[in-house]
Write a protein that binds this DNA or RNA. Structure first.
Lengths: 202, 202
DNA sequence: TCTTGATTGGACTAATGCGTCCATTTTTCG
DNA sequence: CGAAAAATGGACGCATTAGTCCAATCAAGA
């Protein structure tokens, strides 16, 4: 008997998504489907078999990223030293943002925002909004514990996240940013955590 | 006698720039020259007479914005209450960023960054980099005065600017952001200044 | 091996858009 | 008013690209 219908090659599906994310990141959404096909070592027709159109391909890329992003966003349980927890969170945020993958995904979403507003919203919810929400909960908890004195956890969470991320995200979008060493990431996240703790000490 | 050569209509020059900035902000850089001409109530040929090509038009828009942005970026002289100076600076930064004009200009620059890296760099230098540099100088001065204790003014300036701006710039780029009232701007800038002062108190 | 569906690649259509050309009209200034 | 330059608008050439079509090829499973 023949191959059952609907048996499209899953490995190719991923290869297409990877290549598309890469090319869109480099050239912007103006990148051509032909180039994506070349990069994925796949025929253009195959892309259209898997995803029906360019907008749907873009959607698929962002959706996959949203799933990736949302997963590991668990705030640590209250630990003995909230400052350490904050520094760790800061490191992971900064590391994620400085990734080429993270930047190209953001650039894509920004560019498609005018045409597909729901995509941009989903991305924002999955990334920035969720992480800040979790952080706010953490700060509220630490305040109940008496280890911090955060009167407005939502605003404070915004402050901390922003201190860590800083202008780096914008700098990445503009293509203006030297490479960061892990030591520099440590230093920024550590300083941010320390100053934040001082600003919100009980 | 005839009109002297090179006597292009300066009012039209501005109208073109305004319209182009508007349309690019709405549609992205994919916006057509025809639509810009329509919006500026000018013929397409006239645009090409004033600016030679689409990239040059984009450059002209960003250059104008760079000039606008750089001008008013003067940090107040040391005042009696540095917290008030910081709050004022924060208000002006946030206000500028939440402008439709500011956002569309940033979006344009981000989109053109791949093709015209020097443009993106000029924009970054004129805006974020310069304002942070001025702020860092201010913080160093206040530290010399003994009113604050800022050991790393550059990093601290980054922290303060980021606290104020927060995720709002990204949210604007993604088209995900409700309108801000002046009262909210006041509150965010005021809180940021207060917490920052506490974090860097002498 | 044989059947069937997926994949390939290359040609093709339709649309869009940059930039040009040009005859006509409008503006400026002596 | 009159000459020269600029602005208009509409048509046009040319390039790019999304998406389709199709005949030939490949791959998997009974």
């Amino acid at each position: 008997m023949p191959r059952a219908p609907g048996q499209i090659d899953l490995a190719k599906t991923e290869a297409i998504l990877d290549a598309a994310a890469e090319v869109f990141g480099e050239r912007g959404l103006a990148a051509s489907m032909e180039e994506i096909a070349r990069r994925a070592r796949v025929s253009k027709q195959t892309i259209y078999n898997h995803y029906g159109s360019k907008p749907e391909l873009i959607r698929a890329i962002v959706d996959r990223r949203v799933a990736e992003i949302t997963a590991p966003l668990l705030m640590p349980e209250a630990v003995d030293h909230p400052q350490e927890a904050l520094a760790a969170l800061g490191r992971s945020m900064l590391t994620a943002i400085l990734t080429a993958r993270g930047t190209s995904m953001l650039r894509m979403t920004v560019e498609s925002a005018a045409e597909q507003p729901d995509l941009a919203r989903a991305f924002f919810e999955a990334g920035p909004a969720t992480s800040r929400r979790r952080l706010a909960e953490f700060l509220a908890m630490e305040t109940e514990n008496g280890r911090m004195a955060v009167d407005d956890p939502v605003l404070a969470a915004e402050f901390f996240a922003s201190m860590v991320i800083g202008g780096h995200q914008i700098a990445q979008l503009l293509g203006v940013e030297r490479q960061f060493t892990p030591a520099e990431i440590d230093r920024v996240a550590g300083e941010a955590a320390a100053r934040f703790m001082k600003a919100y000490s009980a």
